[in-house]
């Protein structure tokens, strides 16, 4: 099945291990990707400081229009921020004709128009609903043998629309983890925000949020935390030292992308396909022990 993959800015830099693992895993599952030609940034969650709402809508409508012009594939946005920005503007344009006309009158600057025919999907949605856990299980050659994983959902991968999972009690990531023979641990903070895009400027406040999430995961027995968002991954992984220093804690828990765990369970190369060498808190030993290497 063919999709557009809108990987966005982070997956070329701090979230490179997400993109590197996502591609081989999805290809193994029979998915084919095309890039949206000449795509631009989605605006993420902090652009409102400089831009009004219409400008942010135009930013996303341009990507949707460029995709629609090329083909009628669904767009997969693995980054939660790209996903929420794009799906939000898509819904608004689809449901509001006067907004659509207004946005199109601006897109006309470059001869573009968006008619609202494209669907925007999160990678978890596609893996769970288009591929399915049965199909995923068939690709597992190195089961994770009950590895205790805290599946951290965060916020923007399911909220506010809840298109494929509950906004209050999401289960899709846990089901995908189970398909790899991992054991998802229940942990209530899995839907608490990590600080997202304002983590850097509001670090003093957000360190406490991440401490609570890590503490909840560890105290429920997690050996490793999985995520599906480059901001979650960054905020949970890169600041454990600072948190330990500030709160006298002792966190040293690897943070991996769900797709990295899938690559490992699919028996793929730990470096080339699972991209584990990009992780700052090394997950190799825990994962090798789990698969019995």
């Amino acid at each position: 099945m063919k999709y557009f993959l809108y990987w966005g800015c982070s997956l070329e830099a701090s979230g490179v291990n997400y993109l590197r693992s996502l591609k081989p895993v999805c290809e193994a599952l029979g998915m084919e990707f095309e890039e949206i030609p000449d795509w631009n940034c989605c605006g993420a969650s902090v652009s409102y400081a400089g831009a009004n709402d219409l400008a942010i809508k135009v930013l996303n409508a341009r990507n949707l229009a460029l995709a629609e012009k090329k083909a009628n594939y669904d767009i997969i946005a693995p980054c939660s921020s790209c996903y929420i920005q794009m799906i939000k503007v898509n819904h608004e344009i689809q449901e509001n004709e006067s907004l659509r006309e207004r946005v199109n009158s601006i897109l006309a600057e470059d001869g573009l128009a968006y008619n609202g025919s494209i669907r925007v999907r999160h990678i978890q949605d596609v893996l769970f609903n288009d591929i399915g856990t049965e199909q995923i299980k068939r690709h597992v050659t190195k089961p994770l043998n009950g590895l205790k994983v805290a599946g951290y959902v965060g916020c923007q991968s399911v909220r506010p629309y809840g298109e494929y999972d509950s906004v209050h009690n999401p289960v899709v990531q846990d089901k995908l983890l189970e398909a790899l023979d991992a054991k998802p641990v229940p942990f209530p903070k899995k839907i608490q925000c990590c600080g997202s895009g304002i983590f850097l400027p509001e670090m003093d406040l957000c360190l406490g949020l991440v401490r609570d999430i890590l503490d909840d995961a560890v105290s429920h027995g997690a050996e490793i935390i999985s995520t599906v968002c480059p901001m979650c991954a960054m905020n949970l992984e890169m600041y454990q030292d600072r948190i330990n220093e500030k709160y006298g804690t002792d966190f040293d828990i690897p943070i991996v992308y769900l797709t990295q765990l899938m690559a490992v369970a699919f028996g793929m190369d730990l470096k080339r396909d699972a991209a584990l060498h990009h992780n700052v808190i090394p997950p190799e030993n825990i994962l090798k022990a789990a698969i019995g290497n």
Partner: peptide, 15 residues
């Protein structure tokens, strides 16, 4: 496009 959106939208824009 962004210039036009900034000029024609409100502090934000009407929906």
């Amino acid at each position: 496009m962004l210039d036009k959106a900034m000029q024609t939208g409100k502090g934000g824009s009407e929906v």
